[in-house]
Design a binder for these strands. Structure first.
Lengths: 347, 347
DNA sequence: CATTGGATAGAAAGCGCTTGCTGTGACGCT
DNA sequence: AGCGTCACAGCAAGCGCTTTCTATCCAATG
């Protein structure tokens, strides 16, 4: 029924070994033989059996990419960039690799399960994106898995994740970015800044918030606890948190959001509350996703080089680029000042 | 070095066959034996060898998802929904499956290569999303591949793609949606409507445009060829096409875009041209992606139930839902009237 | 002309798992 | 008591490929 290597070998009048070598191209095969084999492959429409060759060769051409939410462009952009570099069809690399994008939904258990699944498939490499969860138990479990994977020959790279001892990391300077943003707002004259944070247990959330607070501290502004609201990384969360901030202190003149999506929710809440942006309240986001420039007014935010970071992580995962010195590369964000931020009301 | 089934068997004092049966749970094993085996698995931190079992069982637990652009939420949303249904970790289904998201970038060759790669992996199922390319040669090649896959036991489902004889299809009524949208605009009094189409060779482009023209025809409006510009499904394309439309006929009072992303570009171009939306020119999108509601004014568009369609496709692919009658289910879009559309200038 | 060695091709031993078929006791039936 | 029936467990034959080692051929060398 299905065509096997042996069938091709028979048709080309060579041994299976030779066919295998033609297909893998890592052993001298006479040109005439090669052609005969290739012709037979073509005639028979032969398709290699992936599992069988993975078993025999003890490696597969699968590359895992773990993301929190595939529907979020933040992850989509990174995943796309990683994939373009791992040498799938159309990529520049040699062998044809299959990217396995795994959607963890931010759940620690799923993250672990997916890592096990990838280990089971003997993945060639794994790239984990997005912030980590700061639960020591989970962190240890992930670390353990990553070590196992590495030992089994799987290359592990973190992209936009805090570094761990177990893997090479391309990490974003969320702290610095947060600081930049808040400094900008303070520079405009703002003194009462609301902050909409992400989920409390995520590293990304903490780092961005730390940057924000560092900027406040540097300017000698006391951070009123009422000015910080935790939420999720989605639009609705931004909407609700903004209403909450307004309730707690109607006097805030700026809202800093955990990311652009949250910022859009904040804008909507402000508008619905009859406030103008930036005349009454300034808004800032984070990430500079493509849609941020289309908000009205366009969002002031911190641009993260998502595609570049993903591409680099992909190349490192494929061994086509050297790992950064010390195994860690920190990528800075760039402040994008746009229409959503301005001087405070009455300034 | 690596732990194998045999090691587990030895430790649990049973045969490898028994271990395999415990792990697959499709053969009676005494409770006491099972426990012993499970304990051994745990002690040894055994991880099944995916390729080996795929080879032996002649099926894998990989499910392919083909998308045009993973960074585009349109595809991200569908991919996420499909994945949540195929029973990966956290999904409701039984076995743990790995979703392989393949980014074709809209390229026909890559599409074919990925299908071959999935065939090679003996994927359990494949879901193709997004519009197809209307090149007969390519269509035939894809059809051929799909037939091969089906014959090999891979379930093939199309999601948001025009039906083909080779597969079950959940398809969007792009034509009807396009018509709805333009009817709405005509109803508001518009008579000079610019249309920014997607790439000319895509089915989605053609269907939406056909709907638009049908609405025009029904209202007795002659479609001036100058009013249609082809482009890509991205923001820049919308921006440039809008300027082009304005150049060709400054008198247009509405712009219908191929999708929401294009519509945002159109809005930007109009704004940059000093035109107000919808006072001077109305704008309409398509898809109702999450950001569309955050545009200012919010985008009038056609909502496509991306997540529902994806979920359904996923369930069908997993054999957990019956295929629709005749193998084709058509999903309609819903007109979402929002702020970006209004009566024409001077009405 | 015998010898050496490079270039190819083949034989065969697995890779680690699944599964059809074959035991083997224990149980219940007549 | 005798025998068919179950419920489990094990044996062993692959699944289709890779790769080491070996065999062969032929040109080049002394």
């Amino acid at each position: 029924m299905t065509v096997t290597l042996a069938d091709v070998a028979a048709r080309a009048q060579v041994s299976p070994a030779t066919v295998s070598r033609v297909l893998n191209g890592n052993y001298p095969v006479a040109a005439s033989t090669r052609e005969r084999v290739l012709k037979a492959v073509d005639d028979l429409e032969y398709v290699l059996n992936g599992p069988a060759s993975a078993l025999a060769a003890a490696t597969s051409d699968l590359v895992g990419i773990l993301v929190n939410d595939i529907a979020d462009p933040f992850f989509g952009i990174m995943a796309g960039a990683i994939q373009s570099e791992i040498g799938g069809p159309g990529g520049r690399a040699g062998g044809e690799r299959l990217a396995v994008v795994c959607n963890t939904g931010g759940s620690p258990e799923r993250e672990l399960t997916y890592l096990t699944l990838l280990q089971r498939q003997r993945a060639a490499a794994v790239v984990l994106t997005g912030g980590a969860i700061e639960d020591p138990v989970h962190l240890a479990a992930v670390g353990n898995k990553l070590r196992k994977l590495t030992e089994a020959g799987t290359r592990v790279v973190l992209c936009g994740r805090p570094p761990t001892p177990e893997a090479i990391a391309i990490t974003f300077d969320n702290r610095g970015g947060g600081q930049l943003l808040t400094e900008h707002l303070i520079g405009l004259g703002h003194r009462r800044l609301g902050y909409i944070a992400g989920p409390e247990e995520r590293t990304t959330t903490r780092h961005r918030l730390e940057g924000h607070r560092a900027a406040l501290a540097a300017a000698g502004i006391e951070d009123d606890p009422r000015w910080t609201v935790y939420g999720r990384y989605d639009r609705l969360s931004g909407y609700e948190a903004t209403l909450e901030l307004l309730r707690r202190d109607p006097g805030i003149t700026a809202v800093v959001a955990a990311n652009d999506t949250v910022a859009l929710g904040a804008c909507a809440a402000l508008r619905d509350s009859g406030l103008r942006i930036p005349d009454d309240v300034s808004v800032a986001g984070f990430d500079d996703l493509p849609f941020s420039i289309d908000a009205v007014p366009a969002l002031t935010t911190v641009r993260l080089p998502l595609a570049e970071a993903g591409a680099r992580a992909g190349r490192i995962a494929m061994g086509r680029e050297e790992a950064p010195h010390g195994g860690i590369a920190t990528v800075r964000g760039e402040l994008m000042v746009r229409g959503s931020s301005g001087g405070p009301r009455g300034a």
